[in-house]
Computed example of a mutant assay.
Amino acid sequence: MTRYAAGAFKNYASRQPNIQAMLNSKLSGHPLMPFAPVLQTVLARTSAGPLLEGTVGVHLRRALELGEGNLVLEAHAIWPAIHVLLPEVFDGALRLQLETLGALPAWAKSSTDHLAYSYE
């Protein structure tokens, strides 16, 4: 998803021709359903955010509704790893610092940055 946000999509996860088809197929087929909160956060905090307005957003909302406690929430062990892998997305203080310095990468910018992250 970050490659898509950076403007270069190469699908290594499936045979789908674009990111929308890939995410829709994976979310509707349930393999990624538990990761809906993670995916929603990545999309909301990057330039890929407009995907949330289409069918990807519909599938993510459905996955969140159907999760019934089986979601990878912030208390899950995977979140610290994701914070390390994508600090520009998940570290609110770093995002603010990079944004203030004009150094936030273009792929990590969203049109709602002031709403999309907290100042931790």
Rank of each mutant, 00 (worst) to 15 (best):
T2K: 06
T2D: 08
R3N: 11
Y4T: 15
A6W: 13
A6V: 12
K10G: 11
Y12Q: 08
Y12R: 14
A13Y: 11
S14L: 03
S14I: 07
S14V: 05
S14D: 01
R15N: 09
Q16G: 07
P17A: 12
N18L: 08
Q20W: 00
A21R: 09
A21C: 04
M22T: 12
M22Q: 10
M22H: 12
L23S: 02
N24F: 10
K26G: 08
H30F: 14
H30P: 14
P31D: 07
P31V: 05
P31I: 06
L32E: 00
P34T: 09
A36C: 03
V42R: 15
L43A: 05
L43R: 00
T46N: 11
G49C: 09
P50S: 09
L52Q: 06
G54P: 11
T55F: 00
T55S: 14
V56C: 01
G57Q: 01
G57S: 08
V58L: 03
V58W: 07
H59T: 11
L60Y: 02
R62P: 04
L64T: 08
L66C: 08
L66H: 09
G67D: 05
G67E: 08
G69P: 05
N70H: 14
N70P: 00
L71I: 01
L73P: 00
H76E: 06
I78Q: 15
W79P: 09
A81M: 13
I82K: 07
H83C: 13
V84E: 12
L85Y: 07
L85R: 14
L86Y: 01
L86I: 04
P87L: 04
D91I: 00
L94T: 04
L96S: 09
L96E: 12
Q97P: 08
Q97K: 14
Q97Y: 09
Q97A: 14
E99P: 00
T100H: 14
L104K: 01
P105Y: 06
A106V: 10
K109N: 04
S110T: 06
S110N: 01
S111Q: 13
S111V: 10
S111L: 10
S111K: 10
T112N: 14
T112D: 11
L115Q: 10
L115F: 09
L115N: 06
Y117V: 02
S118E: 12
